[in-house]
Amino acid sequence: MNFALTVILGLVGLFALAALMRWGARHALTGQARAMAHDMPLTAAFGILVILIYTAVAIAAPALAPFPERDIVGTQFQAWSADHPLGTDRIGRDMLSRLIYGARNTVGIAFATTALAFVVGSILGLWAALVGGWLDQVLSRLVDALMAIPALIFSLLLLTIFGTSILSLILVIAAVDATRVFRLARAVAQGIVVMDYIEAAKLRGEGSWFLIRREILPNALAPLVAEFGLRFCFVFLAISSLSFLGLGIKPPTADWGSMVRDNATLITFGDVTPLLPAGCIALLTVAVNFVVDWQLHRASGLKEQ
């Protein structure tokens, strides 16, 4: 159970580091940022720390990784050693390097996909709610129809038609996700557009774009942010499930979703290799959602008791 011990120690270490960071932030920052740091629970500090680490790793991947992403540097599934701290993968590439590059590729793709889905989905959703009428009907019914088709099968259809380049992968998953975001954004905005301040703004003669940007979006942000946290991690899962069906990111690009799939059979024999990329995904998901929870909590106006 050496592995479990390492994981637990690692997590404790991260929490300690997060506490330290929060303490530093409380003293070093000023003004509103300081107030936020004071308000911040340890979990949120942990989340921010993890996100910062991932970002740093993603940016500095070539400098951090001991080997290039695609180089075959050993034999199949070597054990953990000084040369290869996490061993090698199925065709003899360094596992640690693949994980580090995976941060860059996977987080990049997931971020691009989720951001695209949210921009498209929420703008259309808010717009549909604001304008109403036939535009709302057409968009809503179309989205309903798309949502009624299982996401995985719909992606399978689209990716088979358009091929599996990274761009089409991002576009297809974003399109599927955007329908979900649309529904949420529209539902949230419907409650807002009947408010007096929207009426007032309309009477002032403001245009739709201004209303969406300045009046509705700020008030609809909290549930959207909450959804963003979950959607973000669903992108990893989508890529992973697609590679289960034989579609996914092209080699030699490393991505965690496909890495889980490629090594998954080993878990049958209790080998921990596939846990590494899965763990990377899980840690990031938990971290992002800790931060999201904190922001939601702030937005809800409840004070720590």
């Binding site: 899962l237 499930s241 799939r261 998954a264 899965a278 990031l284 998901t285 929870d293």
Partner: peptide, 14 residues
Amino acid sequence: NAGALTAISFPEFF
């Protein structure tokens, strides 16, 4: 929360 999030961040087959 963390437990539930960890569970959903693992792919189903895994």
